[in-house]
Design a protein around this nucleic acid. Structure first.
Length: 278
DNA sequence: AGATGAGCCTGAAGGC
DNA sequence: TGCCTTCAGGCTCATC
């Protein structure tokens, strides 16, 4: 499922397709995903120009000219497929839950087998008052306000293992389970280190590695494990650059001495090298 | 405040 | 081949 890089890629693909366009039809093939679909979704959105498509953490936000924002989360297995209506249509699947038809002749399909994703509608000016946006931390990628000292300050409020802190969207937003492990390996920090033990220098390095790994993942088209595929059908290939994720028992590619170990932190798998991550 | 577990779902992979 | 169990990229809620 999509982490920030995969959501960013979907967002970049949706941008040229949706901005300055509008929905002509919204077909809902079931009443709900994780939550019930907003009532009157089609009536509220059809024929209203879309102004901006952007991303906040792992949420896709679609702003409309009449002051509404569609919040779109892809959950664990969500996938977006963009097709030109003039081109032959791909075969539809049993998990194609929402289909948007646009005024610029595109068909946008939202496919989500596990149905952990959701759509929500809100007045744009109220976005930051609604959970989780009201409590979301600074975006781990693309937030110019986020620097080492701010990140360090936020971590000092807690006394929890750094890996868990990276997944806490209230502390820093957008990091998922894969890239948390990868960034900690890059920064040579143990996932077990407590947040308030990190120095400013270590925090700065970690932030740099987080942003670096996210940037490289976006450039590589994201990571395709099971579900993530570009809206145009391409797969991402950043999984080939993983250093620790899914590398249990493989020798660490940095120290060449010890195998990557897997532990469970807060029900989530963590991978790291016990030798070079301190 | 922090830790833990359950729950929302399907499907792929591995063990027998 | 087939059945069973485990695990998965997210997030929220309840409980201790």
């Amino acid at each position: 499922m999509p982490e920030l890089p995969e959501v960013e890629i979907v967002c970049q693909a949706l941008k040229p397709v949706l901005e300055k366009s509008s929905f002509l039809k919204i077909q809902l093939n079931r009443p709900n995903l994780r939550y019930p679909f907003p009532s009157n979704l089609e009536q509220e959105l059809v024929n209203h120009p879309i102004t901006i498509v952007h991303r906040r953490a792992k949420y896709i936000l679609i702003n409309f000219s009449h002051g509404l924002t569609l919040i779109w989360h892809l959950g664990m297995s969500g996938r977006v497929i963009i097709e030109d209506l003039d081109a032959p249509s791909l075969k539809s699947g049993p998990h194609d839950h929402v289909i948007f038809m646009t005024s610029h002749n595109h068909k946008v399909t939202y496919r989500d087998p596990r149905r952990f994703g959701f759509l929500r509608l809100i007045a744009t000016h109220q976005l930051n008052t609604l959970a989780p946006f009201s409590t979301l931390g600074p975006d781990s990628f693309g937030d110019s306000q986020l620097n080492a000292s701010l990140f360090h300050e936020r971590l000092q409020y807690h006394n929890i293992p750094i890996k868990r802190a990276l997944l806490d969207q209230k502390i820093i937003a957008g990091i998922g389970n894969i890239y948390a492990s990868e960034a900690l390996w890059q920064a040579k920090l143990s996932p077990l280190r407590l947040t308030n033990s990190l120095t400013l220098a270590e925090t700065g390095l970690l932030l740099k590695k987080i942003q670096d790994v996210l940037e490289r993942a976006i450039a590589a088209g994201g990571s395709t494990l099971r579900d993530h595929v570009h809206p145009n059908g391409d797969i991402g290939y950043f999984q080939h650059f993983f250093k620790v994720y899914n590398h249990k028992d493989k020798i660490c590619s940095r120290c060449h001495l010890f195998p990557i170990i897997k532990i469970i932190q807060g029900t989530r798998s963590t991978y790291y090298c016990n030798h070079c991550q301190k």
